[in-house]
C-alpha cells in the first residue's frame, strides 16, 4: 500500500460502503475495482463486514414461508445427483436418511408431476383444437386452390385450342394466297396465249394469207410445220410439231430467204410434246420472201444460220 493510498484511504472505505450496497457506478466503480484488484486487505475486510451488516436488511423483513414443493423438488434433485456422484462407501451409513428423503422427494415429485401432467393434458388439448382448426383452414384453402387450378387448366386448354385454330386458319389463308397467285399466273399465261391466238386468228382470216408447209430434214425427219404468211403485212405465224426439245443453251431459229439470202425471223422453243409456236417479228419490207427454214442455234439466236437445218419449205 503506497503513501497516496494511505492518505486517501478513508475515501476508499467510504466507496467500499457504496460498493457493498451495489450502488457504486461510473468512473468511481472502475476506480474502486482497480483499487481492490491492486490488493487492499483493509478494504476487503471492510466489505465483508459491511455485507454482514447488510444481511440485517432482509432479516428485518416480515418472513414468508416457502411452499414445501420447493424442498421436495430440491431433495429429489440432490438425491438423484448423490446417487450418481457419491461413493458407494457412504451409502450404508446414511441409507435410512436417503430412503426417507427419497420417499419425501417421490411424494413431492408425484404431486408436482400430477399437476404438470394436468397442465400438459390441457396444453395438448388446446394444441389439438388449434391443429384441427388449422387443418380445416388448410383443407378449405386446398379446395379453393384446386378449383383455381381447374379453372386455369380450362383457360389454358381454351387458349391452346384457339391458337391451333388460328394457326390452321393462317395456313389455309397462306395456301389460298398461293393458289390465287398460281391462278393469276395461269390466267396471265392464258391471256398471253389468247392474245397470240387472236393475232394468229386475225392473220389467218385475212384473204391474202399463204400457207407454207415446212418438211422435216435429216436431224428431225418426222417433224413438220405450217407457216401462215401474209406477204402484204410482212407478218406471219409458225406452228411446228415433231421437233425434239433442244438443251437450255440452244434455241430454234426461223429464217426467211430472199433468194439465197437468209433473214432472221424469230426464235422459239418447243414443249414436251414437240409443239412450237412463233409469231414472226416485223421483217425488212420491200423484199419478197419465198423460202423458209428452221435451224438450231445458240441461245438468243444469231444473225446468220450456223446449225443444222431441221425444217425447210417454199411458197
Amino acid at each position: 500500500m503506497n503513501h497516496q493510498v494511505n492518505m486517501n484511504h478513508q475515501d476508499w472505505l467510504a466507496q467500499a460502503d457504496i460498493y457493498a450496497l451495489g450502488a457504486l457506478d461510473g468512473d468511481e466503480l472502475i476506480a474502486f475495482e482497480a483499487h481492490l484488484a491492486a490488493g487492499c486487505p483493509e478494504c476487503e475486510q471492510h466489505l465483508y463486514k459491511t455485507r454482514e451488516a447488510l444481511t440485517f436488511l432482509p432479516q428485518a423483513l416480515e418472513p414468508v414461508t416457502p411452499p414445501p414443493t420447493v424442498k421436495a423438488r430440491l431433495l429429489a434433485q440432490i438425491t438423484a445427483e448423490a446417487a450418481i456422484q457419491q461413493p458407494v462407501t457412504r451409502l450404508p451409513r446414511r441409507w435410512w436418511w436417503w430412503i426417507g428423503v427419497s420417499a419425501l422427494a417421490a411424494a413431492g415429485l408425484l404431486v408436482a408431476l400430477s399437476f404438470k401432467l394436468y397442465q400438459t393434458q390441457q396444453e395438448v388439448q388446446r394444441l389439438q383444437r388449434l391443429v384441427a382448426s388449422q387443418q380445416t383452414t388448410i383443407t378449405e384453402r386446398e379446395e379453393a386452390l384446386q378449383a383455381e387450378r381447374h379453372e386455369l387448366q380450362r383457360a389454358t386448354e381454351m387458349v391452346a385450342t384457339l391458337r391451333a385454330e388460328l394457326a390452321k386458319r393462317e395456313a389455309t389463308l397462306e395456301a389460298e394466297q398461293r393458289e390465287r397467285e398460281r391462278v393469276e399466273r395461269v390466267v396471265a399465261t392464258l391471256q398471253g396465249e389468247l392474245g397470240e391466238r387472236d393475232a394468229a386468228l386475225r392473220l389467218l382470216s385475212a384473204p391474202q394469207v399463204n400457207l407454207v408447209r415446212l418438211a422435216g430434214l435429216s436431224p428431225s425427219p418426222r417433224a413438220n410445220a405450217h407457216l401462215l404468211w401474209n406477204p402484204a403485212a410482212q407478218a406471219g405465224v409458225l406452228l411446228t410439231s415433231g421437233l425434239p426439245q433442244v438443251p437450255r443453251d440452244r434455241v430454234y431459229e426461223l429464217w426467211a430467204f430472199v433468194g439465197k439470202e437468209p433473214v432472221p425471223a424469230g426464235i422459239f422453243q418447243v414443249d414436251e410434246a414437240g409443239h412450237g409456236f412463233l409469231r414472226l417479228p416485223p421483217l425488212p419490207r420491200a423484199k419478197r420472201y419465198d423460202r423458209f427454214a428452221v435451224t438450231s442455234e445458240p441461245a438468243g439466236g444469231v444473225p446468220k444460220p450456223t446449225g443444222p437445218v431441221h425444217l425447210l419449205g417454199s411458197l
Partner: peptide
C-alpha cells in the same frame, strides 16, 4: 435458511 432466502427473493 429457506424462509430468509425466500422472503428476500420475494422482496
Amino acid at each position: 435458511y429457506a424462509s430468509l432466502v425466500f422472503t428476500f427473493a420475494l422482496r
